[in-house]
Design a protein around this nucleic acid. Structure first.
Length: 423
RNA sequence: GGAGAGGUGGCUGAGUGGUCGAAGGCGCUCGCCUGGAAAGUGAGUGAACGGGUAACCGUUCCAAGGGUUCAAAUCCCUUCCUCUCCGCCA
């Protein structure tokens, strides 16, 4: 959510921002509603002032034994008018608030302006794509042959885009989870959280998944509960509606959770293998920061995600998303992409974003500055640290051997019961 | 799921339908005191929205949403949450 006052006073800049994002929004209607709201507010507040004064006077008259009946009749009419205007404002605000919740965040000035993923900028690269002296296989071939991935039974149990991991596959998934959590909690200073993976509508709205992206989520029929698409949702909302002290910031939270996405609108894409699933595991990092430090924290967070890939020895690159490719709530986003030999390209494995005060406004999370002064909204950041399913894929494809076996990276072996090779 | 008790500011905790945005305390801020600190002491200290260059003014907010009334933190209804007891359960 943006500050409505800012939108009102910076209409040009706001319109430019929307077009940079390729985002269609009924700006004229929004301004119209805002104007109507303020005009009506002025009228009703005048009436309420009159009513308050009248009510007070009636009280005094009763005390002094006078007959307030005439004034009471007048106030009765004022009251009816107030009710009428209040209803009008209610209607206006319902529409206005709904629109406000659908305004995307304003990109940071350092974000490249561009239309789509082709305009993203590569920031750095780590490791080079491996040279194989054989034709590298896709992970689905490797996984099925080794008996560690079962795509058919995943579909049987649920539907397409669900996969069963077996034996060493399941073990590696668990090893990756513990490897990542240990690194973040013991070396990067994160507090580990085990959050609910079903959350209510208010929580989903706080981080921006609702109201606009309901079709991407799984919803419970009989309860006001939704399956989380990422642990960013519960972690960021941990302090919703709270007043924090500056000395308690920054806060670093991480969590392992399954994530659930309907993937509506990506019907044909990545149908083979387990690159794009309705359910996948992820370790997520969330930081709550003061505004002056949040961009430093974004660099740190990105480096923490990279660290995982460095230790595992998987080639990757970091790109900065352009205005047209960024997510709804982000002010700046770095994506980390890993090299997938079978696809001969880089694919996203982590996304680290600074949302500035966009989510904090929705959630109502403020902090009291140590130097005194008014409470301010915090800045929130989130990043995958990292997607476990995709990490498993990258590991399998990059560490495959000519005979179809997979070498387990050394850093992971202690977490996999000393397993050195999957064959 | 059944019965009862509650939800008030950053925290704690009062509040007969009328001058209550809300006593008191804690915390915090600025002074005094002190060589410095603690203790003591004086004053101040909620937020959102609207209007105004500003000082400031107005409206709203006592879990959430409705209702009664000239007037609601206070009365009524609904929902949510917390606590105690019972039942059920991994």
């Amino acid at each position: 959510m943006l500050d409505v006052k800012w939108v009102r006073d910076n209409r040009e800049e706001f319109a430019t921002m929307l077009s940079n994002r390729n985002y269609s929004f009924p700006l004229d209607r929004f301004i119209e509603l805002d104007t109507m709201r303020r005009e009506t507010l002025l009228e009703v507040e005048t009436l309420k002032e009159k009513r308050n004064a009248g009510a007070k006077e009636i009280g005094l008259k009763k005390k002094s034994g006078e007959n307030p009946e005439e004034l009471m009749e007048e106030m009765r009419q004022v009251g009816d008018k107030v009710k009428e205007f209040d209803e009008k404002i209610g209607t206006i605000e319902t529409e206005l608030d709904d629109l406000a919740m659908r305004i995307p965040n304003r990109p940071h000035e350092s974000v490249p302006i561009g239309a789509d993923e082709n305009d993203n900028i590569e920031i750095r690269k780590n490791g080079n794509p491996l040279e194989f002296d054989f034709e590298p296989k896709p992970h689905w071939d490797l996984g099925e042959t080794l008996g560690i991935m079962d795509f058919e039974r995943g579909v049987k149990l649920a539907e397409s885009r669900f996969t069963v991991l077996k034996g060493a596959g399941a073990r590696l998934e668990r090893a990756l989870m513990n490897f990542m959590l240990d690194l973040h909690t013991m070396e990067h200073g994160f507090t580990e959280i085990a959050p609910p993976i079903l959350v209510n509508t208010a929580t989903m709205s706080g981080t921006g998944q609702l109201p606009k992206f309901a079709e991407d989520l799984y919803k419970c029929v009989d309860d006001d509960l939704w399956l989380i698409p990422t642990a960013e949702v519960p972690l960021t909302n941990l302090h919703s509606g709270e007043m924090l002290n500056e000395v308690d910031l920054p806060k670093y939270y991480c969590a392992f959770t399954p994530c659930f996405r309907r993937e509506a609108g990506s019907y044909g894409r990545d149908m083979r293998g387990m690159l794009r699933q309705h359910q996948f595991d992820k370790v997520e990092m969330v930081m709550l920061s003061t505004p002056d430090k949040s961009y430093d924290e974004l660099e740190k967070m990105t480096s923490y995600a990279e660290r995982i890939l460095q230790l595992l020895g998987i080639p990757y690159r970091v790109i900065c998303l352009c205005t047209g490719d960024m997510g709804f709530g982000a002010a700046k986003t770095y994506d980390i992409e890993v090299w997938l030999p079978s696809q001969n390209c880089y694919r996203e494995i982590s996304s680290c974003s600074n949302c500035e005060d966009f989510q904090a406004r929705r959630m109502g999370t403020k902090y009291r500055p140590a130097a005194g002064g008014k409470p301010r909204f915090i800045h929130t950041l989130n990043g995958s640290g990292i997607a476990i399913g995709r990490c498993l894929i990258a590991l399998m494809e990059n560490y495959q051997n000519k005979d179809g076996s997979i070498t387990v990276p050394e850093a992971l072996r202690p977490y996999a019961g000393g397993m050195e090779i999957v064959k």
